[in-house]
């Protein structure tokens, strides 16, 4: 519990990080009409996919932010040595990542949707799909960040490692939103979230033990 409190406290201490994620999202979405066309019909068709891709990139961008500082100042070592179960630590890290990087973006999705001429119904389903799907992104991003911790290879390695795993949430999320909530995709996405929640923190924990040895 103390861990979660610490994570939230750090989040409140550094609003710049939240703002950075938001700005990134808004700016990238603003580039699409400029690059493709201002035609609302075309934008409307692309909007769900574009916002999902932007969310995915934001998630990757913020992946190793809080882990890196824990790694550098030695907190991670103490977490590995401590009595609190390591999978719980990793789960909390994922929650922190989701709260700083992804939740703010989901909150401003209506704004992004307006920029891309979305209908309000699609927008609702898009937000629903993001709410269910983005925690999966966070869980995988923290796993990937833990794997590349201390390797000094930058974001490219992270992208290569994570890309295959981000495909299922991306596909299921966009399909769910574009079919306006066809339950089939919703169940699958929720199932994916459950499976990820139950397995990935353990995988991340096993990688954390390796990472502190670097």
């Amino acid at each position: 519990m103390g861990l979660l409190k610490r994570e939230l406290r750090l989040l409140l201490r550094s609003p710049a990080e939240v703002v950075q994620s938001l700005l990134f999202g808004v700016l990238v979405v603003a580039l699409f009409p400029l690059a493709i066309t201002p035609d609302p019909d075309v934008l409307r068709q692309l909007s769900v996919g574009l916002i999902w891709v932007v969310t995915l990139l934001t998630s990757l961008l913020a992946a190793d932010r809080s882990l890196l500082s824990d790694f550098e100042d030695g907190s991670l070592e103490q977490m590995v040595l401590g009595v609190a179960p390591l999978w719980w630590v990793c789960l909390v890290k994922s929650v922190g990542h989701w709260l700083t990087a992804l939740l703010p973006l989901i909150v401003i999705t209506p704004l992004l949707g307006m920029m891309l001429a979305m209908t309000s119904e699609t927008m609702l389903w898009l937000m629903a799909s993001l709410l269910v799907g983005t925690p999966v992104l966070s869980l995988f991003c923290v796993l990937g960040a833990m794997m590349t911790l201390g390797l000094n290879r930058g974001g490219a390695l992270l992208l290569v490692i994570l890309m295959p795993f981000l495909v299922p949430p991306l596909v299921l999320g966009t399909q769910w939103a574009m079919t306006l909530g066809q339950p089939f995709y919703g169940y699958l996405l929720a199932g994916l979230l459950c499976v990820s929640l139950m397995t990935l923190p353990f995988a991340t924990a096993s990688v954390a033990r390796i990472a502190v040895g670097r």
Binding site: F165, P168, L172, Q175, L192
Partner: peptide, 16 residues
Amino acid sequence: VGLINLPIIKFSVDWW
């Protein structure tokens, strides 16, 4: 982790 995900990836690509 990739091996466990392989069927999930395959199915999601199929549905897509």
